[in-house]
Simulated assay, not measured.
Amino acid sequence: MRIFISTGEVSGDLQGSLLIAALMRQAEAMGLELEIVALGGEKMAEAGAKILGNTTSIGSMGIFESLPYVLPTLRVQRRAIAYLKQYPPDLVVLIDYMGPNLGIGTYMQQHLPNIPVAYYIAPQEWVWSISLRNTSRIVGFTDKLLAIFPEEARYFRNNGANVSWVGHPLVDRMQDVLTREEARNKLGITPEQKAIALLPASRWQELKYLLPVIFQAAQTIQTQLPEAHFWIPLSLEVYRQPIEEAIKKYGLRATVVSGQQKEIFAAADLAITKSGTVNLELALLNVPQVVVYRLNPVTVWIARKILKGSIPFASPTNLVVMKPIVPELLQEDATPENITQAAMELLLNSQRRSQILADYQQMRHCLGELGVCDRAAKEILQMLEDRINNC
């Protein structure tokens, strides 16, 4: 049985790889042989997928920020549709990646309506939708929507989708993590050191807008805390050179590592991070964090005029429970001074740290129980079985 999976960016590649591993496990238990073809990245390839196009670096947030990626996105979307036309799969799974996946889903609905489509981790229409147009398109071409947040499930169910809430896949991923002591020993972090994780970028635009302010704040922090050492896990190896050059420019005591993100998180006293899936990973490992985000000022002006403050939070950690668990410094508030102040408070104010850790526990209950990826895989394989039985 052939499954086609479409996703993009670094987070989609991670979520896709976790799902593929679960699909392979569950298929073996059911006596099914799977072939998985995908748009994704290296992690999905390692999990067993044949990659049609690498989409990990094709993505951005914002209007002007997206312009350089229009042609690469259209090319990869056309490649996917050409493949689907020539080799119709038995089932399609879409993971986030709204622009390309809306096109692929619409193609399936119009040209291959008998092939079931599952949407796993739907676009965050439930957070920032200004009309029901895209929601209606998603509901129209999706046979089963596998939601990761309770509010996401409610939103799409209320708009006519066939929804199952499976929980968030990071609940599974963050189980096999070293203890704090083990992680610090493995990384060579001494007891007196303050280990601070810096996560400035998983997109090129973030190197431009986020890295300078985060590194300026880090520069100030290390003058105030001589015991501070910064750890920077790479989301993509291609970012190593610009990050290492910036470390020299700002004179930071910092270590850049690849492939040890979970160990760094487990060992960290604090993280200064971009907004994104990584915020949930940090929360699940009880790491206090300062969330920072900036976009092109014109993009922000347009968004504010259209959305008019309808997005309550940027970080998934805060969105899950709709309360400010972690500090968010967005756009003009994302200054080195504000980042430094928020970071120092979380490092030195034990009461503030304790409050964040308590709020993390509340948030954790909204992410579901262990076995998320296997639940999602079973739902998808059940769709396959139903198709076989109906043929």
Rank of each mutant, 00 (worst) to 15 (best):
L102S: 03
A122E: 03
E151M: 08
L94W: 02
V92F: 09
F141C: 10
E151K: 13
L71Y: 13
Y107W: 12
S131G: 05
G62W: 01
I115A: 11
I104T: 02
T142Q: 09
N134A: 05
Q109P: 07
F64W: 08
Q110S: 10
Y69H: 15
P68F: 11
F149G: 02
R78S: 13
S60P: 01
L71W: 11
L84A: 14
T135H: 08
R133D: 02
G59H: 04
L84R: 08
F141Q: 10
P123H: 13
V70D: 09
L112Y: 12
L84G: 02
R157H: 14
G105K: 01
L132A: 08
P88H: 08
G62Q: 02
Y120S: 10
Q124N: 14
M108S: 06
Y97Q: 11
G103T: 00
A147H: 03
H111G: 03
S57E: 10
K85Y: 15
L67S: 09
L146G: 08
P100L: 05
L74G: 07
L84F: 02
V117D: 06
Q124V: 06
D143W: 03
W128Y: 10
K144A: 14
Y87I: 11
L102G: 00
R79V: 06
P88Y: 05
I81D: 02
E151H: 14
E125K: 04
V127Q: 12
V92H: 09
E65L: 07
T106Y: 02
Y69M: 10
T142N: 13
Y120H: 11
L91G: 06
Y87D: 11
I81G: 00
L112Q: 13
V76I: 13
A80G: 08
N114W: 10
L132I: 02
K85C: 04
L102I: 07
I138K: 12
Y120F: 15
G99N: 11
R154L: 10
L102A: 04
P72M: 13
